Simulated assay, not measured.
Amino acid sequence: MPEQDREPTPLEKNRALEEWLEFQLRQVRGRIRELEVQEEQERRRRAVAYAEQRWKIQPQRSNAQALLHRGNCTLFESGGGGFINREEAMIALAEPDIHPCEICRPDTGLTS
């Protein structure tokens, strides 16, 4: 009987199945990596959006005054936390020893 006309052996069938399953596993792992990247990008977008809607206070130093910054201002990194809301930012601006950052202009639209 010619080679192409014979029925595959159980071993050949199982090796073919193994190859197919390995292919499927590579596809699933690739999709998982894509989804992990998407999740991380979404987490970063949410963190940026949160920071953009918040403010932060840079404490007074011996050679510099205390400053109010927008949450996404890169001149002062508060370590990923320490954000204040709009009401707290308005109170901070009313304090005589806290000044708005001249770069990010946190007072724009805040005092109205």
Rank of each mutant, 00 (worst) to 15 (best):
G79M: 07
L17P: 00
L68Y: 08
I84W: 09
E3R: 07
R6Y: 02
E34M: 07
Q24G: 08
R54H: 13
L17G: 02
L93T: 00
A49Y: 01
I84H: 09
F83A: 14
P100G: 04
P59S: 08
K56M: 09
P2R: 13
R86Y: 06
N85R: 02
Q60A: 15
A64R: 12
S112Q: 13
M90L: 11
G81K: 12
I103A: 05
E18P: 00
R15F: 14
R33I: 02
P2L: 13
A49N: 11
R31I: 07
E102W: 04
L110N: 06
E77G: 15
V48T: 04
I91E: 13
E22C: 08
Y50W: 02
L67G: 02
R45F: 09
L110S: 06
V37C: 01
R33T: 05
L67H: 10
P2Q: 14
Q53R: 15
R15Y: 12
M1F: 09
E36L: 14
F83P: 15
E18M: 12
Q58K: 14
I32T: 04
Y50K: 08
Q65D: 04
A64P: 00
C73P: 10
Q58S: 12
E52Q: 15
T74K: 14
H69W: 02
E77H: 15
V48R: 07
L93I: 01
R54Y: 00
Q24W: 04
E95C: 14
A66M: 05
L17M: 10
I103K: 07
L93S: 03
L93Q: 06
A94F: 00
E36I: 09
S62P: 00
R86V: 13
S62R: 14
R26D: 15
Q24A: 13
I84F: 11
F76Q: 08
E3M: 05
E102C: 02
F23I: 00
V48G: 00
